[in-house]
Structure formats: structure tokens, C-alpha cells
Simulated scan of single mutants.
Amino acid sequence: MDLTKRCMIIEEVCPRGGFAEFHIRDDTGGGGPLGTSNLSLVIRVAYLGPEGTFTEEALRTQADLVAGETIPVRSVPEVFATVERGEAELGLVPIENAIEGAVALTLDVLAFESELLIQREVDLPISLNLCARPGTTLRDVRSILTMPMAVGQCREWLELKLPGVEVRAANSTAEAAQEVSRSRKAGIAAIANAGAAKKYGLKNLATAIEDHDRNQTRFVLLGRGVPAPTGHDRTSIVCFQRSDRPGSLLAMLQEFAARTINLTKVESRPTKHTLGDYCFFIDFEGHVSEPLVADCLRTLAAKQAKVKFLGSYPVAGSGAVARRSAAGKSWRDANSWVDALQAQVRSEDE
């Protein structure tokens, strides 16, 4: 690395179990040798921007990430690219919504374009608002700007309250709010969160317009390496069939069933090769460091399919921390029991 940039990269394990590379920079601006007195650890995190997105809101629930330098970028692929170019150590992107399902673009980049791995997941409750410049009323709205995933989350409300209104796509809900705030057109509104409306000086015309009140989005943190096991982890892979034959998917799934590994998601996506050719995204409980999981992946890759590993990482959600704590105690107790048994084994000379 160019030493004139006065920075180094070190590797360190995050407090929450995730792997990260920390950017160390000289904050003094001086030209002398680097010393411990003038160094500060700054982790750089790219996220789907601009400021005010739900992704930024999810990021701000993670204390260790907020403590670093946050970098908003315009699209999901650009988040991946920013990390891959070394301009950030980590990246945060949406991957799944409770109403609309998977974020296809994120899955496709994970499967076909990037070698980054999932470091952790972050779940965020989602509430959508219709917002516009002050002075605009609901009756005035003739055009709505937002990201396609958000439209699907409030489709019923839109059909009931604003039938026939034009809907245009944006890269994010915050980008939509930003564009509406800058537009001179009358009757234009955005679907975004309350934070974006406030940041860009918009007025909420309607709040909580999502079709289901338990709406949530899952985000994934991307980086390099595999986080240490916590006792309550998830592993994600994508499987490519070696041949399209009856029972090929069943054969893959039986590898998990035979080992009593619980699947949490199975989803198909086109491989981009030919019509009808699909790959399968599979999420399951466990960590690649566990012998049973490792054996399943080994057999799956050897016998059934080409497998791309997407990561083993801590599970998010309510109760996750308590379950990890309980799992850790159970493993410690089990290790102590086995150690005690092994201590009783006689040597050959006895």
C-alpha cells in the first residue's frame, strides 16, 4: 500500500462476532512518523444511500458500525464495488422483506458477481409514509417516486387511495425523497420513511401506508472472512445443479435432512444462462466451523451440486442474544463433560 497515504490495514474480530478490517489513519495531519499517540481506528462502512434510507436506519442500530465512517452510495451493486475496491471495509444492503420477499438484485450480485461474504444480518421494522413538498395535499398527487420494493409493500393502499397515479422508480426511498424536494413539478410525492421526509424538508401526507403492520426488512453486512461461531448462527449458500434431472433438488435437500439441519429458506433464481435454468439459495441453521455443517457442505459439493458459500454469521431478531448466550453455556457444559470423560481414558501402559 502507498505509505504516503499514511494508512495501514489490520485485521481484527468485531465485538459482535463479525469479521472486519479496520482502517487506521493519522488524524493529526502531520508529516512525521506514525506513532500510537496519533492513530485512531476507523472502520469504513458503505451503505445504500443517500442519507435517510432504511439501510442507514438499520446501520444506526449497530453501535460498532455507527462509531466508524459511513459512506452512502447510490446502488446495491455500488455498495459491493466500494468494498471490493478497498474504499470501505464493510457494506450494508437489503436482502429480504417480509411482504415482498427477496431483494433480487442483492441475491444476484452475491451469486454471480461478488466474492464478499455475509458478516451479520440486521432486522428492521419498516413503516412507509407518503410525503411531498409543503403545500401539497393528497388530492394534488399525480405522480409518485420510490423504489419498486416499496411499491409492493403498499400496493393495496395505493390502489385504494390513489388509483391510477403514475409510479416511477428510484434507487432508494431516500433518493426519491431527495428528488421530490428538488423538483419544481407540482403534484409529485415520494414513498419514504419519516427520517427521509424530515431530512429533505417534506411533509407527510399519509403515514404507515404499508399493507401489513408487521412489515420488516432484513439487511446483510458484507465483508471478507467468516465471523467466529456464536452458538446461534445461520449459513447461506447457493447451489447450481450439475444437470437438470428429476429429483435433483430433493437430493440436495436430503443432505440436510439426513443430518437434521434445519433449513430457514429455499429460493430459486434464474442462472442467467437459459430459460428454465435455476440455482437455489439455501439458508440453514449452523456454522461452517461445526463438523456436521462442514460434512453436509462437503458431501453436497462432492455429490450433488456446485456450491457457492455466501457466509456463516450470527442470527438477528428478537431473542437472538439470549439464545446465543444459552447456546454458549450449553457448549461450555458439554465440553466440560467430554473433557472429564476423556480424562478417564487409560493410557496403553496402564
Results as ranks from 00 to 15, higher is better:
residue 111 A to H: 03
residue 144 I to R: 01
residue 181 S to A: 14
residue 147 M to T: 05
residue 300 L to Q: 07
residue 306 K to T: 11
residue 187 G to M: 06
residue 88 A to M: 03
residue 226 V to T: 08
residue 237 I to P: 15
residue 46 A to L: 04
residue 161 K to Y: 01
residue 94 P to Q: 03
residue 50 P to G: 11
residue 205 L to C: 03
residue 269 R to I: 14
residue 74 R to H: 14
residue 146 T to R: 05
residue 59 L to P: 05
residue 339 D to G: 09
residue 91 G to C: 01
residue 175 E to N: 15
residue 262 N to R: 12
residue 127 S to C: 00
residue 287 H to A: 03
residue 214 R to F: 00
residue 90 L to C: 08
residue 269 R to T: 15
residue 64 D to W: 03
residue 291 P to F: 10
residue 127 S to H: 00
residue 330 S to W: 02
residue 275 L to T: 15
residue 44 R to I: 13
residue 176 A to Y: 08
residue 195 G to V: 02
residue 75 S to C: 03
residue 263 L to V: 05
residue 33 P to H: 00
residue 148 P to Y: 02
residue 166 E to V: 12
residue 299 T to M: 08
residue 94 P to R: 03
residue 92 L to V: 12
residue 116 L to Y: 03
residue 134 P to V: 00
residue 231 G to A: 09
residue 325 S to K: 06
residue 181 S to Y: 07
residue 57 E to D: 08
residue 77 P to Y: 08
residue 101 G to H: 11
residue 30 G to P: 00
residue 34 L to F: 09
residue 340 A to L: 11
residue 117 L to M: 08
residue 328 G to M: 04
residue 283 D to M: 02
residue 284 F to L: 02
residue 200 Y to S: 09
residue 117 L to P: 05
residue 301 A to Y: 06
residue 49 G to N: 05
residue 162 L to G: 02
residue 326 A to S: 10
residue 320 A to F: 03
residue 317 G to N: 01
residue 327 A to Q: 06
residue 20 A to R: 12
residue 309 F to R: 03
residue 178 Q to D: 12
residue 25 R to K: 05
residue 200 Y to T: 07
residue 171 N to I: 00
residue 287 H to D: 09
residue 235 T to R: 11
residue 165 V to A: 00
residue 180 V to E: 07
residue 253 L to G: 09
residue 48 L to P: 02
residue 208 A to S: 06
residue 24 I to W: 02
residue 125 P to D: 14
residue 271 T to Q: 07
residue 193 N to M: 03
residue 213 D to H: 05
residue 184 R to A: 06
residue 12 E to I: 00
residue 291 P to T: 12
residue 39 L to G: 13
residue 224 R to G: 05
residue 341 L to R: 01
residue 19 F to M: 12
residue 196 A to C: 02
residue 100 E to A: 13
residue 286 G to F: 10
residue 329 K to E: 09
residue 153 Q to D: 08
residue 13 V to W: 01
residue 231 G to C: 09
residue 150 A to E: 08
residue 278 Y to E: 15
residue 17 G to K: 06
residue 79 V to N: 02
residue 23 H to Q: 04
residue 37 S to P: 12
residue 345 V to E: 02
residue 175 E to T: 14
residue 101 G to S: 07
residue 93 V to I: 06
residue 267 E to T: 04
residue 278 Y to S: 15
residue 73 V to N: 07
residue 30 G to W: 04
residue 235 T to W: 10
residue 135 G to H: 08
residue 265 K to N: 15
residue 124 L to H: 10
residue 278 Y to L: 10
residue 186 A to N: 11
residue 1 M to H: 13
residue 117 L to Y: 01
residue 242 R to N: 15
residue 175 E to Y: 13
residue 312 S to V: 04
residue 145 L to C: 05
residue 291 P to K: 11
residue 239 C to T: 05
residue 243 S to M: 12
residue 48 L to T: 03
residue 201 G to Y: 02
residue 97 N to P: 10
residue 302 A to H: 14
residue 153 Q to N: 07
residue 285 E to R: 05
residue 185 K to R: 13
residue 66 V to T: 04
residue 219 F to C: 07
residue 218 R to T: 10
residue 331 W to T: 14
residue 220 V to L: 11
residue 49 G to M: 06
residue 50 P to N: 11
residue 146 T to N: 05
residue 208 A to C: 00
residue 272 K to N: 15
residue 301 A to D: 14
residue 337 W to T: 13
residue 319 G to P: 07
residue 44 R to P: 00
residue 176 A to E: 06
residue 107 L to Q: 13
